[in-house]
């Protein structure tokens, strides 16, 4: 196990999370599989709380299509266990499940399927001061109490430690097929994406990769009954390919990655703002990432986006610069800060 500092606590059971938070003073950085650590702002001298060994699937109720997992369960482990039941967790993202939800790679309007938000039914969690609490339920529908567990989604582990997650599962599709349409110009890529978005049953994954040269690839996955999959591919003349989905862009050498959100109809506006050599990965539903060659290019883009009132944040690059973002709605910011202050008053979770 590697750790950025020599202060690392590996917990073996859920109770130990509370004990650790109660007993150890100072700031704490949560770590699951470690795959996203380089996308978070620097944690400084914080103790790393390693949750990767909280890895048991506590309950898997196939007929009810729900399960309860510890936060350190890895995505591929769960997928393996679900397969014999003909079930899947229909959202993108890998690593540990705690990390998947905390980072919310694609956002609430994930296209063509449920978002992480709607798959998280409830949780057992621990506050920064070591107090355990629960939120939500195990069943697919419950409106009792406030949905504090939904705060996990996108929280990057800075509000509380979710130790157990109650998840909703869905039947795995009978068949699925990836497709890729490379070599499109901007207009044709946009037209194809918008046509596919308007399908009553849209592709479960749909993304545009745009190289700095302006060369676009529209790729995605169609899932469902074989007859439907074939029909959809045929009607749109989509070329089949091996699985090619991508969740994130790697940071170019010396460059940075900015994440933001934009609608498909506003994509041309975004394209106009991009400097040459900027790679773009856009997910239908809105979330995108841009890989930029230099910090100067990043700052230019953030400024230009801010001028448009667009949301974006620097997610990958020099650790001191990570977390830079466009100005936020002050009301939203106030609630966000307020939640942090009330759930973690000493700012321990970083």
């Amino acid at each position: 196990m590697t750790s950025p500092t020599d202060r690392c606590v590996v917990v073996d059971d859920v109770a130990a999370v509370a004990t650790c938070l109660r007993d150890r003073p100072g700031r704490v950085r949560l770590r699951g599989g470690g795959s996203r650590q380089d996308r978070l702002a620097a944690a400084g001298d914080a103790t790393v709380l390693d949750l990767s060994r909280l890895a048991s699937i506590v309950r898997l109720d196939g007929p009810d299509q729900t399960c309860t997992v510890e936060c350190g369960v890895r995505r591929e482990h769960l997928d393996q266990e679900l397969a014999p039941h003909g079930l899947e967790l229909p959202c993108v993202g890998g690593g540990t499940l705690g990390g998947l939800f905390a980072s919310d790679p694609i956002g609430a309007s994930t296209f063509g399927g449920p978002s992480p938000r709607s798959l998280l039914l409830g949780m057992d969690a621990v506050l920064a001061d070591g107090t355990p609490f629960r939120s939500g339920a195990r069943v697919v529908k419950s409106v009792a109490g406030f949905d504090v567990h939904k705060l996990l989604v996108g929280s990057e582990g800075r509000l509380f430690v979710a130790t157990r997650l109650h998840l909703r599962l869905k039947p795995a599709p009978r068949t699925s097929q990836w497709f890729a349409m490379p070599g499109l110009d901007d207009a044709r890529a946009l037209a194809l994406v918008q046509t596919l978005q308007q399908e009553p049953v849209a592709p479960t994954r749909l993304q545009v990769r745009r190289a700095g040269t302006g060369d676009c690839t529209v790729q995605g996955r169609v899932a469902g009954r074989a007859a439907f999959v074939l029909d959809l591919l045929r009607r749109h003349g989509l070329r089949e390919c091996a699985p090619c989905g991508l969740d994130h862009l790697p940071a170019p050498t010396g460059g940075e990655v900015v994440a933001g959100i934009t609608l498909s109809s506003a994509l041309p506006d975004l394209w106009r703002l991009l400097p040459p050599q900027a790679d773009l990965l856009w997910h239908a539903g809105g979330r995108y990432e841009v890989a930029l060659p230099t910090p100067v290019a990043t700052d230019d883009l953030l400024r230009a986006l801010a001028a448009r009132g667009d949301h974006a944040i620097l997610v990958h690059g020099d650790s001191a610069r990570r977390g830079r973002l466009t100005p936020h709605d002050p009301g939203h910011q106030r609630i966000h800060t307020g939640l942090k202050a009330t759930l973690d008053p000493h700012g321990r979770l970083v």
Partner: peptide, 20 residues
């Protein structure tokens, strides 16, 4: 306060206040 947006939920890295 403005929660979320038509383009997905919110700024990456911010909690899902719309859902809450």
């Amino acid at each position: 306060a403005v929660l979320g947006s038509p383009a997905g939920s919110r700024l990456p890295g911010a909690p899902d206040l719309t859902a809450l």
